[in-house]
Amino acid sequence: MENIRIHGRGGQGVVTAAELIAIAAFYEGWEAQAFPNFGVERTGAPIQSFVRVDDKPIITREQIYRPTILIIQDATLIGAVDVFAGATQKTTVIINAARNIWPELKNKFPRLYLTPATEIALEIFGKNIVNTVILGALAKNTKIVSLDSLKKAIREKFAAKGEAVIAKNILAITKDYEKIKN
């Protein structure tokens, strides 16, 4: 079972990111569950969302306290909120950051990946919406979702938003996927 916890702020699409992962994992043939931990509904407030992916039906509904994958959409939360709670040496940690300003994290979490999601988001959307962008890094570094299944999930989830939005989001995750490779 993969236990994914996503940290971000209200307005950054933290909940949508979890839903996209679950939809993509479902397309890959996994059982999947996604749910939010809404705080007060306020832009900028720290928010978490959760995804479980397994090969058996998922019945537990507790929040995720021991993440196997941790996604930090907003690096300003590091130090402000205990985003690393329950993470271990085995946890895959993906942080939206252009460069590593936390040298101690690499020792603590050998599977640490940084991705310049904000840069990509500013380039493609003209604003700091990183929730889909950062999923490119997830596809690259885990086996639960592929770039193709994420693209399919984006097409489904954003169907009502129109082709232009879908195309930009797909471009964004693809770019993130490739950046991580380099």
């Binding site: 909940v15 979890a18 839903e19 679950a22 939809i23 479902f26 059982e31 999947a32 569950q33 996604a34 749910f35 939010p36 809404f38 998922i58 509904r61």
Partner: peptide, 10 residues
């Protein structure tokens, strides 16, 4: 509320 209404599952 939320636990079922706002969660995704098959």
């Amino acid at each position: 509320g939320f636990i079922l209404t706002h969660s995704y599952e098959p």
